[in-house]
Amino acid sequence: MKLEGRYARNRKTLSEEDQLKLSTSCIAIVGCGGLGGYIAEELARVGVGRLVLIDGDRLEISNLNRQIMSTERNIGQWKVEAARERLQSVNSEVQVEGIKGWFEEEKGPELFREVDLVCDALDSLPTRVALERVCHQMGLPLVFASIAGWFGQIGVSLPGDFSVKSLFGGGKRGVENTWGNPAFTPAVLASLSVVETVKLLIGRESSLRHAWLQVDLLTMEFERFEIQ
């Protein structure tokens, strides 16, 4: 369906030229859970042309508290399938490809063959580090984000930066095992990821290169730290 005026409210934040750049861009979203679902939703609404969603999980009841692609009716469905269906009903102009499987380093070149930028929405620290390695080998920008309880971190890693390695290089699991993930934290961090993604796609300068934003929703503090 071609809907005139679909992007009218993107103006003048985004120009027609920006909109055209978005419509010819392809983004891979690695992980389609709390963060990835909201990232996909916003990228589809803002008008990115093609999305590649990667997740090897099916929806379960405990996802309902936060994952926008989950409903009481689609429990048990592949997350990428549920996302594709929802995104098609939101914006049928967006091409959505769902990969039912987990990201692995050796699959990177195939998964990201036609991709312009990668969004990290993983839930594993070592896999994030591997994802950054692949992105850098392929010359792709990476917007990384992570959440736990009231807290989150987000940043941008351009080829050669190795920001993710500096931040997450040491650990295996984060404090999310204890703190869980409530509804609001993935929505906030996903929105921040989408802002940085859109800026990179339309050629604006990223505000979070060589840095990360430390988000604390309990105290409502957003603090930027440099990665030296």
């Binding site: 990835g36 620290l125 971190q153 984060g174 404090v175 993930n181």
Partner: peptide, 10 residues
């Protein structure tokens, strides 16, 4: 000194 725990969820 600033100390940060690992935040790894998605």
């Amino acid at each position: 000194i600033a100390l940060f725990p690992p935040v790894g969820g998605g």
